[in-house]
Design a binder for these strands. Sequence first.
DNA 1: CCGCATCCACCACGATACTG
DNA 2: CAGTATCGTGGTGGATGCGG
Lengths: 125, 125
Amino acid sequence: MWRYRHTCMIRGDEGRTVRAVLDRICDKWTLLIVATLDRERLRFGDLQRQIPGISQRMLTLTLRKLERDGLVSRTAYAEVPPRVEYALTETGRSLIPPALALADWALEHIADIEASRAAYGERKK
Amino acid sequence: MWRYRHTCMIRGDEGRTVRAVLDRICDKWTLLIVATLDRERLRFGDLQRQIPGISQRMLTLTLRKLERDGLVSRTAYAEVPPRVEYALTETGRSLIPPALALADWALEHIADIEASRAAYGERKK
DNA sequence: CCGCATCCACCACGATACTG
DNA sequence: CAGTATCGTGGTGGATGCGG
């Protein structure tokens, strides 16, 4: 199912580079927000509704970080009530394939992982 | 360059599932360890040498977690001095394509991200 | 509707020292 | 060599309340 070519080996110094970026996108919500913004501009409230469990605070903070890193653009309309829309930038869109690849992997293997965890827990007793 | 098809939308309940797995693989070292074990059984010390900056403690903890989740297998040989080898399981190997996809993305876009950060910092003053 | 400020609990992580 | 034990710390993220 997966077609891919990889260009790096992740050894030595490259490991450092990978870690630098991972520090920025591997927090609790970043990948989920990026994936949710795929192909769709969304308002703040819509985003929060589509991402179960995220708090207003973390949504704001994570969006700011994404904006700062140039992955998400923010557009505020001078209306009453206020309306703010978020969309992926070109760089942000480029993250979609690897992000969804990871999300797909997550959905496909969650059962195996939980089964292994349960078995491991048993062996410990 | 990217050929992919994705099977999920990451909406609502699926978001929860994705987050559950993300909680397990999105820490500071997991992806890097998995990527380093690609195609190569490695001893504890070799792993530590190939991953710059990781502490003995974090390597141990992360490997235990990976073992518990069924992504990595541990083999101890009764020798003196002791020798322990780690290798990916089948589930672990299935994580390689999405992990390398993310690593590639990281290497390709680190410059854009840092530039955007610098520009954002300037605007704030 | 959008989002910032504050307070606070937890734990991820690093440093260090010690063992089989 | 391959860990475990212990301690200290910064940061992440949740809850709540206010403000434009």
